[in-house]
Write a protein that binds this DNA or RNA. Structure first.
Lengths: 338, 338
DNA sequence: CATCAGAGTTTGAACGTTCAAGACGGGAGG
DNA sequence: CCTCCCGTCTTGAACGTTCAAACTCTGATG
């Protein structure tokens, strides 16, 4: 194997000094055009690539961002993270960053992992997913001034840190509005127990849309932990009412799938919508709210790049003055179920 | 923020030299016990963590392995990669490695990415997924003596490089055998077009089991590209035969889901089995072949660790003499569909 | 008593990059 | 003619680690 190509190899080959090569890479404008070209030719001829490790030693920046990969809880929602990860890797790559994975069982060990990763790998930033009220991870990171972005808004204080989120309320509202235009008048909601940021948000979108039609949402509002069997049980209860709903908006595809099974079992015709547009929804023809995950990932990278290159956040804005919070609109994917 | 803790900080604090601290970390046995303890205390007191970048500069090893994250083609199979990735991250972490992600549209750009990653980040190894006949990626890596493991066997030459795979033939054989014990005598197969390593392997398991019952498999053998609608179409054709099958073994959950829809549409009772035990299968009660993904991931890390720490491969074995190929047995998950 | 061995520890150098400061030459201004 | 400045380029040092070699004891051996 040929000797490793370093900046010195290039310099020698182009007849200049190390620093000039470095300048061609980082501030080409201060190098005379003729020299610049000569160096560039040498770089591509030799296939030179700057050693990230050496660069990191000098600059203290690793060009690495970390994301946690979760143990695929439900199985259904796993694909959301999967698609987000793919988008993140792509967007990060374009911005000159790489994505590193880590796992953690709970917030406490996750924080220990932060410490590890920061100490050993000098990570530039973290992307957190699944934030909720009173998240200790964000506090820990903020306290140490470690750059991070969350996918999922800051539920406690809107502008505490940069985040990217999808407007869940708008999603359920769109689903509900669609059902209204289909002529449905009794539209139920099957969501998660009150208290989670994401869950309450999705419920609110449904509730406000129902309220706008003049009906009272409270009667057809249900809450249960996430899961297929849970969704089936709750939907079955709803369908057994004296005056049952003709449509059910669900907070997740898992719940919606359960609801759909309850509907089938009773042999009735009731519309069902889900949330997340997971493969399962695509597979069984479930109308669902789709999150723009690739776009969300790209926004995360944008925000991070702003924080990292623009020097921190001030007043909820990144270095270049753009707001450090991004709320994206989901879209409704219509299928047979509703 | 406090000054960065380096090996020199620890050395000063413990009253020894840098090298002694390094020795305590890497070859504790050559350091006097008393000194060792003193250094260890200083390390934990100061929260010292070796800088990976500095270490990498000296040793040339980054403790980083790269995996490609794919753009979730079908949507259904994405979760396989997802679960594998999680297992890999966990296993790698325990072995002192970290996982880095990258994307690539096709084998050619993937190879360009290898070059990039190797040049800039000095990656220690790659994990490839989805290998097939005549894979140019493995040739490129092998030629440059870059360590790698594939998840998916080497289809062309069994012992060319280390790989981990799940015995697909055993999986479809188990599914078929189960159907035989249920009394089924006409068992069809819906798989992919002949020519792909994985697909042919899965077909072979079904075929040999059918043949063992004395029947001729050829009549009920079907091939189609992967997909739900494709599976539905082919299954529908099978069900329309003068003498239709009473059970269908499928090469993927996508195909199986399609088959299940065809069965439902015709209102007949025909058993269906899938492959991969994806969330979709769990959701709709589809009997499916489950791959031990966490174990596969762990095996990949084991092999890599063997190659990296044991000094390469010889005669299809890693440094410590264990075979460099691992074939894992899948398991059949029984559900309502079969 | 000089020599040697070996355990335990220290020292200098090197990995490849970028920062900070300096060197060089030529043109403008006094 | 000297000075200063500007554009362009070079030099030395530093980042934090580990390798290789050297050093210092202590105790044993001839």
């Amino acid at each position: 194997m040929a000797q490793k190509v370093t900046i010195a190899t290039v310099a020698r080959h182009a007849g200049v000094s190390r620093q000039t090569v470095s300048n061609v890479i980082h501030s080409p404008e201060i190098v005379r055009e003729e020299t610049r070209e000569r160096v560039r030719e040498a770089i591509s001829l030799l296939g030179y690539r700057a050693s990230q490790a050496a660069r990191q030693m000098r600059t203290g920046r690793s060009q690495l961002i970390a994301v946690r990969i979760e143990p695929t809880r439900d199985g259904i929602n796993g694909s959301v993270l999967d698609r987000f990860l793919h988008g993140l890797t792509e967007a990060a790559g374009e911005a000159g960053y790489r994505v590193m994975l880590y796992t953690a069982e709970d917030p406490a060990t996750e924080i220990a992992t932060y410490d590890d990763l920061l100490g050993a790998y000098d990570l530039d930033a973290f992307v957190l997913t699944g934030t909720d009220h009173g998240d200790i991870r964000t506090d820990w990171l903020a306290e140490r001034k470690v750059p991070f972005v969350t996918f999922g808004r800051s539920w406690d204080a809107p502008e505490r840190y940069p985040w990217v989120d999808v407007d869940g309320a708008a999603g359920t509202a769109a689903a509900t509005a669609h059902l209204v235009t289909q002529g449905h008048q009794r539209i139920a909601f099957v969501g998660w127990p009150v208290g989670s940021g994401v869950g309450d948000n999705r419920r609110a979108g449904w509730a406000s849309t129902v309220r706008a039609t003049g009906a009272d949402p409270a009667e057809l509002d249900r809450a249960t932990p996430d899961g297929i069997t849970q969704g089936e049980a709750v939907a079955d209860e709803l369908l057994g009412l004296r005056n049952p709903p003709t449509a059910v908006v669900c907070a997740s595809d898992s719940l919606a799938l359960g609801a759909l099974q309850a509907v089938r079992a009773r042999g009735v015709t009731v519309a069902v919508t889900g949330f997340d547009d997971t493969p399962v929804a695509q597979a069984i023809g479930l109308t669902s709210v789709s999150q723009p995950l690739a776009q969300a990932a790209a926004s995360c990278v944008d925000l991070l790049a702003g924080v990292l290159d623009g020097g921190g956040i001030r007043d909820g804005r990144t270095g270049d003055g753009t707001p450090a919070q991004v709320l994206l609109a989901p879209s409704l994917v219509l299928r047979q179920s509703g």
